[in-house]
């Protein structure tokens, strides 16, 4: 017993975090009964099945021919026709689905990029400069975090219809450039990770304030910036109400709205059901890949800034 308690302690001295993770399990294994381990792992496996089965089903269903879809086992492959199905989806009505994917990539990709830069500048300024009305400004922006996107959709529609700009790209693109959460996270992260000394040193070297931000501060704030980008990307990609009430012209639709409209037509055009399923799969792959690829950044960004 003495030996088992001593070793996690010494490990703690070096890396306190890892010692509590899987690294210490062989030590505490003696203390934790096999029963509680088994129960814990069983819960994990059941939860994994719950979370992944629908996505697995979507993948399997997308790979089937129309005949196999209803006649073969739903959770396992039959004739693998995924690429034929994708080709059929892309062919349908002059590649309108590709157009929707491109629109989503534009709204979410460019929109989140600009939103991140704008929010980072504002958050950095609030963290690093003292000016009159600073706290008031921050509190107003913080109030913006509590205003959900759906609550703004109707007011935005009223405003855009005043200037005759509904049913344009701008009606969906421009509102998604605002990320109050991004300002909040940037402020907290900049305050914690950009030391005043570095800004002073850059000043002594003769660098301008704006240049210092773009060359020095953004590098130090990188995890927060990736987090802001990702969550804004997801928010725009998932946004449904705003395009729903703004857009009439099908060629401007993002992929979520396009698939929604198709899904409402399934009862009249049964063949479209297969396209909805394949389209759904294709619309989530970019997001899952982005999250997997950038996980190191957003996980630390969430841990450091999300909770203060």
């Amino acid at each position: 017993m003495t030996a088992t308690t001593a070793s996690p302690r010494s490990a703690n001295a070096v890396t306190p975090r890892r010692a509590r993770g899987s690294g210490s399990s062989q030590h505490s294994g003696i203390r934790e009964s096999a029963v509680s381990r088994t129960i814990a792992m069983a819960v994990m496996v059941v939860a994994t099945l719950y979370f992944l089965t629908p996505i697995w089903w979507l993948f399997v269903a997308s790979s089937k021919t129309r005949a196999d879809f209803t006649t073969t086992a739903p959770l396992w492959f039959a004739d693998f026709a995924l690429f034929e199905n994708i080709a059929a989806l892309f062919d349908y009505r002059n590649a309108v689905f590709l157009r929707w994917l491109a629109n989503s990539a534009l709204y979410a990709g460019i929109g989140a990029l600009i939103a991140t830069i704008i929010a980072a500048m504002a958050g950095y300024a609030i963290a690093k400069y003292t000016f009159r009305g600073r706290e008031t400004l921050f509190n107003v922006i913080l109030g913006g975090v509590l205003v959900p996107a759906t609550a703004l959709a109707l007011p935005l529609f009223l405003l855009f219809s005043q200037v005759g700009a509904t049913n344009t790209i701008w009606a969906v693109f421009l509102p998604s450039l605002v990320s109050p959460f991004g300002v909040y996270l940037s402020r907290i992260y900049a305050a914690a990770s950009v030391p005043d000394e570095i800004i002073e040193a850059a000043r002594i070297d003769g660098a301008g304030e704006v240049r210092t931000f773009f060359t020095v501060a953004t590098r130090l704030m990188a995890p927060a910036l990736v987090t802001i980008f990702l969550f804004q990307f997801v928010a725009i990609w998932n946004n449904f109400f705003l395009p729903l009430i703004m857009l009439r012209d099908e060629s401007l639709f993002p992929v979520t709205l396009g698939l929604y409209v198709w899904n409402t037509q399934v009862s009249q055009i049964p063949d479209i059901r297969a396209l909805v399923i394949i389209g759904s799969l294709l619309s989530i792959i970019p997001l899952i890949l982005t999250f997997l690829g950038l996980q190191r950044f957003w996980q630390s960004g969430l841990a450091n800034g999300g909770l203060k």
Partner: peptide
């Protein structure tokens, strides 16, 4: 410390967040 492979489970549970509500 009861669970092994926590990294995999973390990502598996988070995956649905990447699926748009629609």
């Amino acid at each position: 410390p009861l669970v092994r492979g926590s990294k995999f489970f973390r990502l598996a549970f988070f995956a649905p967040y990447a699926v748009p509500s629609v």
